[in-house]
Write a protein that binds this DNA or RNA. Structure first.
Length: 277
DNA sequence: AGTAAACTCCGGAAGC
DNA sequence: TGCTTCCGGAGTTTAC
């Protein structure tokens, strides 16, 4: 499921393929995949150039030269790809935007439709209308400082629930939460405000390390994830706990356990990540 | 107020 | 073959 590294990989791929290109008309196969109404008619993107492609949290943003920004939330099964227009179009493709006078197109596909598209006016910094497209969104884990991170942890909630909360810190989902907590040797159900300063620092290091390595390997393809070229990621082969139930911990050989934390399936090593100090 | 849990969306996979 | 159940990102609702 697309989290920060997958969104980053897609954004980088799109930057290579559509930056500076002019968009043609958009065609919605599922009009309700456009989640906002009234910011601007979709026809306003036609004929405008892509001036910026970037990521915020788990979302991919495409900014145009007329200050309109397309925001893509990938949900669980979202795919954002560039393909030749004459190539077979898979089912559940909800939006197609022509490129290069129609030779190629940008395709948004989302089998379960937990994702969506927003068209925002005045860019993203124009705060006003961004509404559900982006906010409320916490700071970026790859940019946050340790003092700020520690202050985010001053709550009684379970640490994993906190990390999953996009309004606290942006971009982490189930996979990278589990992986980061394992790297930091912290139990996923530990109370955030029980972590020692050393544990908090280890956790931020774990988050950064796992995100950077996942980005380097093009993200994790668990079910539907593909990059902008339609390729699989490679990081799923490097997972140390996620979906490794009953397999040996890479550090101590203890079988990885699966429990439910924050209503999410949660994988951890009972020896390396003890419940209490 | 802060936190947690339940419910909603959706469709594919797995189990019976 | 045909049910039923599970899963999950994220918003909303309900309950402590």
């Amino acid at each position: 499921m697309p989290e920060l590294p997958e969104a980053e990989t897609i954004a980088r791929g799109l930057r290579r393929t559509i930056l500076g290109r002019r968009l043609g008309p958009a065609r919605f196969t599922r009009p309700d995949i456009l989640r906002n109404r009234g910011d601007a008619p979709v026809s306003d993107i036609t004929g405008h150039r892509v001036v910026e492609v970037f990521r915020r949290g788990k979302r991919v943003l495409i900014k145009l030269d007329n200050d309109l920004t397309l925001v893509f939330a990938l949900g669980m099964t979202g795919q954002l790809t560039v393909a030749r227009t004459d190539a077979a179009c898979p089912t559940h493709t909800h939006l197609r935007i022509a490129l290069d006078r129609g030779a190629r197109e940008l395709r948004f596909r989302d089998v379960r439709r937990f994702g969506g598209v927003w068209l925002l006016k005045d860019g993203v910094t124009g705060q006003k209308s961004r509404g559900r497209a982006l906010g409320p969104l916490g700071p970026e884990p790859l940019e946050i400082r340790i003092t700020q991170f520690r202050s985010l942890l001053r709550r009684k909630r379970q640490i994993k629930a906190l990390l999953l909360d996009q309004s606290i810190i942006a971009g982490l989902g189930n996979i990278y939460c589990d992986e980061a907590l394992h790297r930091a040797s912290i139990h996923p159900a530990a109370r955030a405000d029980d972590l020692t300063p050393d544990q908090s620092a280890a956790l931020l290091r774990g988050i950064r390390a796992v995100l950077r390595e996942a980005i380097r390997r093009g993200g994790s393809s668990i079910s539907d994830y593909r990059d902008a070229q339609g390729n699989l990621g490679y990081f799923q082969h490097r997972h140390r706990v996620y979906q490794r139930t009953d397999q040996p911990c890479h550090r101590c050989r203890t079988p990885i356990q699966r429990i439910i934390v924050a209503a999410r399936s949660t994988h951890f090593c009972p020896a390396c990540q003890p419940p209490r100090v």
